[in-house]
Design a protein around this nucleic acid. Structure first.
Length: 374
DNA sequence: AAATCTCTCAACCGCCGCTGT
DNA sequence: GACAGCGGCGGTTGAGAGATT
């Protein structure tokens, strides 16, 4: 039985016809909405009240904005979701002309995937643990012992742009998990399509992986967003998440706030305005990933067939991996895995680095500071 | 050109909280 | 306080369009 032919208790279900839409519009324009239970009968519709309310709220309402989500709207959704979770109606109240259903769909079909590919857990908005552990290994192996790979503008820092590493490693892990896509996603309560996402990753031949490495161009917006999320997850000001959440929920006005240029951040998804800094980052990253050392580590990762255990957690042997790939590293580098592993977030160095860069804190409502408190 | 696969999003379902009796 | 009715919300489904083989 298809949606279009479904009938129950004499009530029609499935897609609405233009005639039904017109009847509903005419009735509401004349009498207003509300009393959804009795509305369909009065309007001459063979639909349940719920169906009418949904049709009106999600499609027929005159103030509904159609079309693609803007980058500003996307930013807002991510920021609001990081605080509110799946409170789609509350999120929608802050996006003029957007419905909760529309936002929910957009989240599930676009943003969630995008965040996942960036190495961010879309549920917690924190870096994926599997990616973090790999990043830790690579960071330790590559950069602590290879000063030439440090970014010029970060010279002297042992921890370089980890979010770029996260992004690459997320890609790599996605390829890696193709043989067992459940590995990475089981613990995230993902939508069915998310497994498809991983299954759709191309088979990782060496040539394709080389291409991945050669063409990997970190996007500054991704980097900024990741860094912001990392900062938030480690910022002591954000510890009381519940308090922040309730403050925000109280603060959010049911009257939608429009997003002006001044309270939104520059659109960093675009590749168009690549700054010198980005070029420097990209070229340095290219240098890193084309290094023999990186290839060595990377090949070891690929050869490791037991990357994740049944719980979806990384399950590789750090010492064997490092000993097989970092023969030129100093003993202190090898031992440093215990002190620099990201398991609970980041190192002291990174807290310092990311904590000062709340680059993408979205100004959700006037009066809220960066921690979400008044 | 046809078959198959993938993605999107409108619509449904079930649950929950609020309100009135 | 208990119950019923209703509206609202979030999770899920599946038709159909578009992309790929």
């Amino acid at each position: 039985m298809t949606k279009s032919s479904t009938e129950k208790n004499g009530l029609k279900k499935g897609p609405w016809t233009p005639e039904e839409d017109q009847k509903l519009i005419d009735y509401i324009q004349k009498h207003g909405h509300g009393k959804w239970r009795t509305l369909p009968k009065n309007a001459g519709l063979r639909r349940c009240g719920k169906s009418c309310r949904l049709r009106w709220a999600n499609y027929l309402r005159p103030d509904i904005k159609r079309g693609r989500f803007s980058f500003e709207e996307e930013e807002a959704i991510i920021q609001l979701h990081s605080v509110l979770g799946n409170k789609w109606s509350t999120i929608a109240a802050n996006l003029p002309g957007r419905t909760d259903n529309e936002i929910k769909n957009y989240w599930n079909t676009h943003i969630k995937k995008k965040l996942f590919k960036m190495g961010i857990d879309p549920v917690t908005h924190t870096p994926r643990l599997d990616v973090l552990q790999l990043a830790s290994i690579l960071n330790t192996s590559l950069f602590n012992s290879s000063p030439q790979f440090n970014y010029p503008f970060l010279s002297g820092r042992s921890m370089i742009n980890s979010s770029q590493l996260l992004s690459l490693l997320s890609t790599l892990l996605s390829c890696q998990s193709r043989n067992n896509p459940d590995n990475v996603l089981n613990h995230n309560n993902f939508h069915q399509n998310d497994n498809q996402l991983l299954q759709n990753q191309p088979q990782c031949t060496q040539m394709q992986l080389d291409d991945t490495l050669q063409t990997f161009q970190p996007n500054q917006r991704q980097v900024s967003l990741q860094e912001n999320l990392i900062a938030k997850s480690n910022n002591p000001l954000n510890v009381d998440h519940q308090l922040m959440k309730s403050k925000l929920e109280n603060q959010i006005s049911p009257v939608a706030t429009s997003f002006t240029h001044q309270n939104t951040l520059p659109n960093l998804w675009h590749y168009d305005n690549i700054s010198d800094l980005q070029i420097a980052q990209s070229s340095s990253t290219m240098q890193c990933f084309s290094s023999p050392k990186f290839n060595s580590i990377f090949n070891s990762l690929l050869e490791n067939q037991n990357l994740c255990n049944n719980e979806g957690m990384p399950n590789f042997n750090l010492s064997s991996l490092l000993s097989s790939t970092t023969s030129s590293s100093s003993p202190s580098t090898l031992n440093s895995s215990s002190s620099t592993t990201f398991v609970n977030g980041t190192t002291e160095d990174e807290r310092d680095t990311y904590g000062s860069r709340n680059m993408l804190m979205y100004n959700i409502s006037n009066g809220l500071n960066d921690s979400g408190l008044l």
